[in-house]
Simulated scan of single mutants.
Amino acid sequence: MAGQTDTIIDAILGDIESGTLNPGDGIDETALATRLGVSRTPLREAMIQLETAGLITRQPRKGAVVFKPSLEEFLAILEVHAKLEGQAAGLAARRLSTDHAKELERIVVACEHHAATKGDADPDGYYQLNLDFHRIIAIAAGNPFLLEMIKTNARKLMAYYRARYQYVGAIADSAKDHREIATLITARDAEAAEQRMARHVQFDQVTAMDLLAVLS
């Protein structure tokens, strides 16, 4: 039963990460159970765990829906997320291994190549590169508890970061930020890396309002 519950959770998280499920979307539990070949009991357990993590909510007559923050909630989550991502970058600067340094350089080069050759095209493709960039840094931080906190928080914001890359110039700006952050991490400048990463993941209130409106 536990294995089925994990399978359901992984499927829903995968749909959130891929953009198949967006904030406010309802989750068709019957269709999900059929698709995965599971019974109602592990499905209920999966929904309880996701609700406890704040990734779904229960609404009257709609059932389970993907968490959709208000402006105040969005800014509050973003504030915490910036701190977590910043901490990861600072720790990565102190603990960066040779293998992680190579991985970080590889993904930064891929981000720069995308920005140089595709410009604003293929924002979804760039978003996947962006996920890899942040994932590598979180892993390089060497703190599995911090990594899980970042993952949970990021899933509440993924749709908004993905939408951000629809804006003109956003991909080029992001790739430039990635190079600056990677340079600080490889230079072992933990304090500067933490501050730069925190600025990188933040949105101002006007941008946050725009993104919430796009996905409303």
Rank of each mutant, 00 (worst) to 15 (best):
Ile12Tyr: 00
Gly3Phe: 03
Asp124Arg: 11
Ile8Cys: 03
Pro69His: 03
Ala193Trp: 02
Ile56Arg: 00
Leu36Gly: 05
Asp210Pro: 01
Ala192Arg: 10
Ser174Glu: 13
Glu73Tyr: 01
Ala208Asp: 06
Ala31Ile: 07
Ala154Asn: 15
His81Tyr: 14
Arg188Glu: 07
Leu131Met: 15
Pro42Asp: 10
Asp210Arg: 11
Asp10Tyr: 08
Lys68Glu: 09
Asp28Gln: 02
Gln128Ser: 14
Gln205Tyr: 03
Lys151Gly: 02
Arg155Trp: 02
His178Leu: 01
Arg40His: 08
Ile185Ser: 01
Leu131Glu: 14
Thr52Asp: 15
Val206Arg: 14
Leu212Cys: 09
His114Cys: 09
Leu91Asn: 05
Leu147Phe: 15
Arg40Ala: 15
Ala2Met: 11
Lys102Cys: 03
Ala172Glu: 13
Glu191Asn: 05
Val206Asn: 11
Ala193Glu: 06
Thr34His: 11
Ala33His: 00
Thr98Ala: 15
Ala208Tyr: 08
Tyr161Leu: 00
Lys156Thr: 09
Ile77Trp: 06
Thr207Cys: 06
Arg196Lys: 13
Asn153Arg: 10
Ile8Thr: 10
Gly37Ser: 04
Lys151Glu: 13
Ala46Pro: 01
Tyr126His: 13
Asp124Trp: 04
Ala172Arg: 10
Glu29Val: 04
Met149Asn: 11
Gly119Phe: 10
Glu51Leu: 03
Phe145Gln: 15
Arg179Phe: 08
Leu43Pro: 02
Glu45Ile: 08
Asp25Glu: 09
Ser70Val: 02
Gly19Pro: 07
Thr117Ile: 07
Thr117Pro: 04
Pro69Gly: 07
Leu55Trp: 01
Asp177Val: 02
Arg61His: 11
Glu17Asp: 14
His81Pro: 03
Ala213Val: 03
Ile136Asn: 09
Lys151Val: 05
Pro144Thr: 10
Val66Leu: 11
Gly14Gln: 06
Tyr165Phe: 15
Gly142Trp: 06
Ile107Thr: 11
Leu43Lys: 00
Leu43Met: 14
Leu157Thr: 05
Arg155Lys: 05
Asn143Met: 07
Leu32Asp: 00
Ser18Arg: 13
Cys111Trp: 04
Gln87Tyr: 05
Ala2Trp: 08
Leu212Val: 02
Arg199Asp: 11
Leu21Trp: 09
Asp173His: 14
Ala89Tyr: 01
Arg106Tyr: 10
Thr207Val: 10
Leu104Asn: 12
Leu43Ile: 02
Leu91Trp: 12
Ala141Met: 10
Arg155Phe: 00
Ala93Leu: 12
His134Asp: 10
Ala208Met: 09
Asn130Pro: 09
Leu147Trp: 14
Gln166Gly: 14
Leu184Asp: 05
Met1Thr: 10
Ala208Leu: 09
Leu36Asn: 04
Gly19Asn: 06
Arg94Val: 01
Leu78Arg: 06
